[in-house]
Design a protein around this nucleic acid. Sequence first.
DNA 1: GAGCTTATTATGCAAGTGTATAACTAGCGA
DNA 2: TCGCTAGTTATACACTTGCATAATAAGCTC
Lengths: 211, 211
Amino acid sequence: MSRKPFRRASDAERRADLIEAMLDCIAEGGIQNATVREVAERAGVSGGLIRHYFETKEQLLHAAYRQTMAAMTEISAEAGMADGKSAGEKLAGFVAACLMPPMIDARRLSLWAAFIAMARIDPAMGAIHRESYLEYRRLIERLLAGAFQEAGREAASADIRRLAIEINAVLDGLWLEGSLAGDMFEDRELLKAGLHSVGAITGLRLDDIEG
Amino acid sequence: MSRKPFRRASDAERRADLIEAMLDCIAEGGIQNATVREVAERAGVSGGLIRHYFETKEQLLHAAYRQTMAAMTEISAEAGMADGKSAGEKLAGFVAACLMPPMIDARRLSLWAAFIAMARIDPAMGAIHRESYLEYRRLIERLLAGAFQEAGREAASADIRRLAIEINAVLDGLWLEGSLAGDMFEDRELLKAGLHSVGAITGLRLDDIEG
DNA sequence: GAGCTTATTATGCAAGTGTATAACTAGCGA
DNA sequence: TCGCTAGTTATACACTTGCATAATAAGCTC
């Protein structure tokens, strides 16, 4: 009766593995499939180990949610922060990044939806949503303010706020459909729709990246 | 040892009860809480009865999804079909209905998100999503075509299609945030955002219902 | 009101659930 | 090389899960 040989991993490494395994479970089988045993198997460890890193399965879930949202924010923030571009180009680049892979992604959508469904049930999940939503909107507001200034247009902060809400909404909606049923749209159709609608909402001229 | 007395209900009535109980379970505790026993208890029947009306728990879930989407489509379709109004007013009424109670509703959102999360996992759920999405978009296309004609503007069907996609997206996004965290927005803020963005996207002038 | 159909309850079962606990061993510091 | 610590495995436990089955009674038909 010999036990399975194992390797002692660092705290950060093992936590990351467990979180990733948890996300795989949810993405492939829904929240119902995210059992401690399934997570452990995917992470290549025994079931009990989860409890050594997370007090409860729920805490692992919270960590997984935070990481998912952080990754999404990072992708689009990066696109909106590129150096050597005009403010308008940054905004357009941000919009484009939101509507292309790796943001448009079925796995990401499954995760996002599963977490959103829990946001109202579990207060901790609700708080995570709120934080990440506000961070995202602030990012849009910054891009917007820059683009307005560049265009020589004044805009009250209340207007910026409302426009950011609208932009966030249309991007959410387009991202959602593109990720869920991408085959229903032609190539770059969502991208064009995003640039057109953001342009129309703001009154700014946003050119497609490749024209 | 006497059994619980019961009443024999009609097929339609019992099915509706079971579907409603299933929706309550999901809305209040997530898909994880939607067990046959919990559903049965909420419906006031014994656990075994579910299997008498649905071959499997999954089929009950599918029926619940269909009903949820049908109810949402109906609410907004009704608002877009009101008699004695101009086409522009119908479109504005539709937009407004999408962004007010009973459409803006936390319970509805929880259900929607839980189902969306399953749409990619379970092919049957995916098909239900696709159907309801297309029906919704066709509704928008009809309203749009009417409003353009009324305004004396021509629009190719490809343009109508793209604009409907954009409108659907922005309404989805605003509805999402309003339902999920309504307290983050001021009164009628989402409504104004919706009318402004749909107006901007289409180039049509949409007045708020009360100005 | 008798008889019959079937909607409904009650119970059972095998598999799966999250967590607690104890035994084991990898890999560091001496 | 020899502990020692704590990361890791293995196992057990109480409970829940979806589904199957048999017993029961509601309420229609004649």
